[in-house]
Design a protein around this nucleic acid. Sequence first.
DNA 1: GCAGACTTGGAAATCGCTTTCCTGGAGGTC
DNA 2: GACCTCCAGGAAAGCGATTTCCAAGTCTGC
Lengths: 332, 332
Amino acid sequence: MVTLEDVAKHAGVSLATASRVLNGSTRQVGASLRARVELAATQLGYRTNVAAQTLARGAANVVGLVVHDLVDPYFAALADGAMRVAESRGLMVMVGTTHRDTEREIAYVSTLSAQRVRAVLLAGSRTADLRATRRLREELDRYREGGGRVACVGQDLLGADTVAPGNREGAAALAAALAGLGHRRFAVLAGPAGLITARDRTAGFAEALAGLGLPAPYVVHGSFDRDGGYAAVGEAVKAGATCVFAVNDVMAVGALAALRDRGVRVPEDVSVAGFDDIATLRDLVPALSTVRLPLADMGARALEMALDQVEEARVEKIPGEVVLRESTRRLA
Amino acid sequence: MVTLEDVAKHAGVSLATASRVLNGSTRQVGASLRARVELAATQLGYRTNVAAQTLARGAANVVGLVVHDLVDPYFAALADGAMRVAESRGLMVMVGTTHRDTEREIAYVSTLSAQRVRAVLLAGSRTADLRATRRLREELDRYREGGGRVACVGQDLLGADTVAPGNREGAAALAAALAGLGHRRFAVLAGPAGLITARDRTAGFAEALAGLGLPAPYVVHGSFDRDGGYAAVGEAVKAGATCVFAVNDVMAVGALAALRDRGVRVPEDVSVAGFDDIATLRDLVPALSTVRLPLADMGARALEMALDQVEEARVEKIPGEVVLRESTRRLA
DNA sequence: GCAGACTTGGAAATCGCTTTCCTGGAGGTC
DNA sequence: GACCTCCAGGAAAGCGATTTCCAAGTCTGC
């Protein structure tokens, strides 16, 4: 491997000059020397050793991104937004997927911190496991003490810059809209009891119904994915709901599949709504009523917040927009 | 930031000993010293500086992954598979998304090479742009000269270990299956003319039809995504096809949407098939006939090949499996 | 009891780059 | 022309690990 020293020798200049020419510096270098260095670099095929550079500079041109699951379009969209920002700033992105294992999340933060990444972006809901959250927070604090920056998408539980989707409010607005269609008996496919996003959406939905004087929804817990929706919806319809709210779109898809398998028609027999408005799922039949979140923008915004961090942590609330489509119908 | 030297001092041992205890080495360290070092490390909150480690060791515990678009479930699945392998080997993953820009792809390889990553995994179809392919290859060669390892998912065009999906064969098998249903007039939503994956699938399909003595399919080009399928399918049905083959599932989804918008029923009026068998899209109605590829396994396998690289480049062909579902019907 | 083989611990060189500090010369002012 | 300020260029001190080489002990086997 050809090093900067090789280039400097070949160009007949000092190491310092070569460094200034090739790797940016505030200092000027005379035109002739500059040209000599550049020529030498291309002739020899010089490639910066980023590790050495990072060591000398004390910070890497890398940001870390921790998501639960890249295959989940929710996280894919967030990651995409964040990666665009990273790209525009000349940063590489290191991605870790936790598959919803909080231990792994902590481990990733620790690894990323060891990598001296410029910023860490944590995407995805916290859980109600306070011990794990505390340990994660300690890990983040350590990282921040070393000059690291942190932002997250989700709940403001880590004392970091946060892009907080309006889960409660969005679910509440959705409840109001569905009630406006004439529904009175609701069920919620609420996902895991411990997942805060799931909880907030469930709670917001229930509160809005209560505020309208409607009966409390029938709540069914399950996993936060497609199969969770598939498994839970049976109980929901058995309970007599005319409208089922799945706390995310992917679960709603599972619910639709299950209903289809049982010969229950949507929306004729039962209405179904989701949350997130995942782009990949917009061509579903029947088209899913949902709450739209600008996921890519949220990922982008979170990374921006981390990189342009100010003194105190900011929380940016992202409102969801209710979108009614064919999967929910007006009751006679 | 606390350094290894701090730890060594605090524990009253040499730097060498501290290093051997904390960062793995073939050398043994006595139990008592070992304990002292470990205690000191946790007390001080020591965290390895990976950049320094990489510099000293000459290689990073990182692999690079270059994909076209993370939001596309095809790449998300590949990435997921690769990331599981990386995780199991204690490697971090740096991801770059090219958004189908070959220049960016080359730039990423260059950056990753500067990062001294252990391996680079290139996912996604090559294009017919030979100049770009040559430059990419040069860049890869430079990286390999420095000890880097390369693997790709797609076509064997880079002289690297390759996981090659059986595009031609899969499309041919699909054609045969669809012909077996009685179809004779086919159209292909063939994607961009320059994309080799798209070409191969189209060619395989057409060849199989020819082999069966059936008329050549009507080929419509367009973009390789959902909107490409949406836009192209109109022309396909106008041409009188009873069965439309979209060269990937995402395009097929677009095609289904367009047909629905025009009141064309699938599969009653026209049959539609895709390719890839994207998991997220399995709950579509009508369920999509397609060719299944084990995407996550392919991503995983490619990274394994890169990491366990042998002398000469290997090519591993992955057969696709035809899956007929409701979107294609038997003609009377 | 002793030569030889293994171990364990430490000193110091190295990895490849950045950046501070110094030096000499060019340009400007009075 | 003397004095001062700037500025381009180089020498060298880090950055924080790893690892080679040595020295000193500890076991073996006879």
